[in-house]
Design a protein around this nucleic acid. Structure first.
Lengths: 364, 364
DNA sequence: ATGAAAGCGCTAACAT
DNA sequence: ATGTTAGCGCTTTCAT
């Protein structure tokens, strides 16, 4: 920077002011500084300015892993926002318990970022406490953090909406398959089951506990879960899976059992990852990229000390994407044994108003 | 840091030395410093030390996007390695051209990393030049960068191995479905087709150009591609897809056409993402996490100025994962019309030696 | 509007 | 083995 100053024939202060766009620089000085900067292709060192301003120009994200559709999408959103505000994205992924406690012991983000985004973490009380004392804005993403800034989707409403979609197609025996938690995603699971129950209650349908089954994830677990459903005296005509990847497993088991989807059983997922489109799976879409974007914007606002209040919760909506895996219940008025098996089950409902739900049906 | 020094009753130098693990600290002093650090939960500021050491303690990754299986897996590997060496992971994802040129314009600004990993990028000559002049080690991941440090898998060998797997199962009409590029992944595509051709040539099988089809990705594109194959006077008995997600699309089309996999047509993918296991898809596994790990280690070595030579190319192997989607050709000696349709096509070949390939067959 | 000087928190000589 | 001191490259008073 001294070089630039010398070349431009001004002081470093003036160079600094010019570079930061302060107005108190004469046009002439500014011109000369800019020229010198260009000639030397000079760029100010972030570390040096952080040292005095206390801002690092980076936002950190803490995530339990990096290789899931959801995390990737959220990071996309975050990254996009940060790039626009000129901040760097630094990622801490802690997969096992050792790495996790190492992170919370040292909280390395402390001095190296201006804000922290915590992604899908089931935190212990003391971990919350550690983050509270971090001295920088923390935004909790895809999780409810009581009294702390959070961004997440309305899982209850989403599951309710999805269940209503199936109800509107005439289904009365609707199963729900959820996964037992392994890695902190448990919260959504609970919420989604709750939404499912609410929808049934609203439809004045008795809740049959046998229709709610859990899988531990692997193909075998799901095979057992679905087996349990198919073994019921009154098996379900529709299955609502907690997540798309579980829906996929359910789909495989159904196919192996020679049960056609959606002709015999409708299948609904939750997430809308690429998978769902590839499989023509109806699903409740979760706006993962937008979650990331929102969280990133919130973090930026908090860093800039704007009026964004800490502790606010931003709840994003899900929306139904009807595809070919859901269709009217077999033997219903509208749909018989459809043609090639694809592109059935259109659902015209915009899904805005939870109360006034128009009748839904397969395409005529 | 001064606080820590005072509390421990030593000088800042001693604290600094302790924190950096230098040996010239007495056990007693070290103990007191560590206690003080713990009590104050002190973390050294990276910016301050960078300012004097010139090392930022971070590695940057440049990626075209964040939401693919492959990128997630690679980042996992990179992250894991970096964590162990105490470095931060900075992610720059540049999805569109505007962001891309912005990144390369401001390159010098990226003085806040000690090394750069470039992931799956098809770079222009001037972009290479920019990176060359960056003044920090650059590792190219999942791409061949002539004369520059690169880490990638042997796509040719992988595709050859996969094709041989199908040949060994008795298939003679083997189709290859590749995707037309949209986002820089074109290189692998070309290599994989080449491997496929080599294997056919080695088996002294004539190459039927009609068996090599391309899809632009969407379900429709794939439908057309597969339709073309099925319409041949002599349709293929096996399909090798360039990637798992394409294999999935092919699978859907085949199912829609009431063609059973693997009984009527064998299907082989490439990647081994989660999808493949879920679908019981045979595939050529690409060690994505290990690619990341290797690249991360290489970057670390380069930063530490070790003897790792710049410009070296590390080529990682792929390996065959036979699952239920590949089986002996219909009407062959060994396999008739297997049971439930799952878990067929075991392939005992370790796949080490390209020359001496033992006969392969479905399970007896 | 501009410059001089005093740090920001750390590390790297150089003492001791 | 430990303390002292002089910067690293910038921003920020405080003068002018």
């Amino acid at each position: 920077m001294a070089d630039v100053a010398e070349r431009a024939g001004v002081s470093v202060s003036t160079v600094s002011r010019t570079l930061r766009g302060l107005s108190t620089v004469s046009p002439e000085a500014r011109r000369r500084v800019e020229q010198a900067v260009g000639e030397l292709s000079f760029v100010a060192s972030r570390q040096a300015s952080s040292l005095v301003t206390g801002k690092t120009g980076a936002v950190a994200v803490l995530t339990p892993h990096l290789n899931s559709w959801f995390v990737g999408a959220v990071l996309s959103g975050v990254g996009h926002v940060l790039r626009r505000s000129g901040r760097d994205l630094i990622v801490y992924s802690v997969s096992d318990m050792a790495e996790r406690s190492a992170f919370f012991d040292r909280l390395p983000a402390r001095r190296n970022a201006d804000a922290l985004l915590v992604l899908s973490f089931d935190l212990a009380e003391e971990e919350y406490a550690g983050l509270d004392g971090l001295g920088m804005p923390v935004v909790y993403v895809s999780q409810h953090a009581p009294g702390r800034t959070s961004v997440y989707v309305d899982d209850v409403a989403g599951a309710r909406r999805g269940t209503r979609h199936l109800l509107n197609l005439g289904h009365r025996r609707i199963a729900f398959v959820h996964s037992v938690d392994r890695s902190g995603f448990t919260y959504s699971s609970r919420e989604r089951v709750a939404g499912y129950r609410q929808a049934l209650a609203e439809a004045r349908l008795p809740l049959d506990e046998e229709l709610v089954v859990s899988t531990c994830g692997g193909p075998d677990g799901t095979r057992r879960a679905v087996g349990r459903l198919l073994g019921l005296r009154q098996p379900p005509t529709a299955v609502f899976a907690e997540a798309d990847h579980i829906a996929l497993e359910v789909l495989r088991v159904l196919r192996d059992s020679r049960i056609r989807v959606p002709e015999q059983v409708s299948l609904l997922g939750f997430d809308d990852q690429e998978l769902a489109e590839w499989l023509d799976l109806s699903t409740m879409a979760q706006p993962a990229v937008e979650i990331g974007r929102t969280a990133g914007e919130l973090a930026s606002a908090l860093i800039d000390g704007s009026d964004a209040d800490l502790g606010q919760h931003i709840v994003l909506p899900t929306h139904l994407i009807p595809r070919g895996s859901t269709a009217p219940v077999p033997g219903s008025a509208s749909g018989g044994g459809g043609g090639s098996g694809a592109d059935q089950g259109a659902d015209p409902d915009p899904g805005a108003d939870p109360g006034a739900d128009p009748a839904e049906a397969g395409d005529p």
